[in-house]
Amino acid sequence: MGLRKTGLALAAVLALGACQNGGIFGGGRGGTDQTPGSGAIEESSLEYFNTTIGDTVLFPVNEATLTPEAKAILDKQVAWLNQYPDRTIVIEGHADEQGTREYNLALGARRAAAVRNYMVAAGLLETRLSIISYGKERPIALCSTEACWSKNRRAVTVVAGGLGNV
């Protein structure tokens, strides 16, 4: 996927208020709840993907190994993506603050690649996904203890494409 296209798609997703997604600028700003009053979340919606399935998988310290919990979430993500084949995804890799910036950038890429490789092995078309690393540039939890670091060692699946179906 071309860079330019990814950028546009991402911008569109953000404009739709995907704050819960924990994407590039997620976490810091309070978003409005997009759910209709009925309470049920539409299964095709980003909110369903981001919250009911879960858009984030977590990693051990300085590792890019997928835990059984992470694999269970990714299996559900793949099943959802198989159901909505017009959706594409960007996998963001992140690290906690316990490393140098450049190393963590590479570590974040390793985590994003681990998710990508797992999804491709599970049958997802490689052309539907791309990866990016933010290293330690975009923490989602701000304290400087393991309670926060464990949340920041993450890969986030950001869904784009197929916006007409939201």
Binding site: A64, E102, L105, A106, A109, R110, A112, A113, A114, R116, N117, I131, S133
Partner: peptide
């Protein structure tokens, strides 16, 4: 410089 190709940098 470094070029990051997925898990390999």
């Amino acid at each position: 410089m470094s070029i990051i190709d997925g898990s390999n940098t």
